[in-house]
């Protein structure tokens, strides 16, 4: 135990640096994923035919083994001299987050009580007003749940980014495996788990704050 604490003491700033890198990668990926995913989800509610196709495609994306997806990125991004590192990792994470975000946004808006939609139309709201004032506020808890799933998923999958040189906490695990360094593997895993738990809790608090008071249970 003392030996492990000693390891942590010596490597503290290194671990911290990797943690910050991990948060940056996942954080930026999530922000981009939310912007794209929520927009697509909302758009799909107006285009039934496309909805099925897009949701199916997003599902397929999620079935690709993560390590393979990161690998697939390399030849594509080599074309713009970004074959390994931050950019391909970011793109892979954005793609992975799309399914939970799109699907939850789409079904949350689709499942808003039809009586509210009817009332919104009846009082003379335009399509956009209905979306902003009625549909999104009432769909928010479910949309946020999708975002939370995506964040937790990304923090875990972000570990793989280390394989294509994007750094982050995966570095500790990859190095640990190649050097059979148990402390390194354990540390990497624990920090990733803590990060996921903290992120989920923080997002849950944000979700509660954003949820209109009238639709809390």
């Amino acid at each position: 135990m003392n030996e492990y604490l000693e390891y942590l003491r010596i490597n503290a700033s290194y671990i911290w640096g990797l943690t910050v890198q991990h948060i940056e990668l996942v954080g930026i990926a999530i922000i981009i994923a939310i912007i794209i995913g929520v927009s697509i989800g909302i758009y799909l509610t107006t285009n039934e035919d496309l909805a099925e196709t897009v949701l199916a495609a997003a599902s397929v994306l999620l079935t690709i083994p993560s390590i393979a997806l990161f690998g697939i990125m390399i030849p594509f991004f080599s074309l713009i001299n970004q074959g390994i590192g931050f950019v391909p990792a970011l793109v892979a994470l954005v793609l992975y987050s799309q399914l939970p975000i799109i699907r939850n946004t789409y079904s949350a808006i689709k499942n808003v009580n039809p009586a509210f939609i009817d009332a919104a139309n009846g009082v003379g709201m335009k399509r956009r007003q209905r979306l902003v004032r009625v549909e999104i506020p009432n769909a928010l808890p479910v949309i946020m749940a999708g975002i939370r799933t995506a964040v937790v998923l990304n923090i875990g999958i972000g570990v793989i980014a280390a394989f294509i040189g994007a750094g982050g906490l995966g570095t500790l695990i990859v190095q640990g495996i190649t050097r059979t360094d148990m402390y390194s593997i354990v540390t990497g895993s624990i920090v990733v788990s803590l990060l996921a738990i903290i992120a989920d809790t923080v997002l849950l608090l944000i979700q509660k704050r954003l949820t209109p008071k009238g639709i809390e249970n």
Binding site: D118, A119, N121, V123, G124, R133, V134, P212, G214
Partner: peptide, 22 residues
């Protein structure tokens, strides 16, 4: 149609109030 609806009061059976608004 938007202007028309704003000039006509509309009441429905239940849940017509927006739950997210006070």
């Amino acid at each position: 149609e938007i202007e028309l609806r704003r000039k006509i009061g509309y009441v429905i059976q239940s849940n017509g109030l927006f739950p997210n608004m006070n």
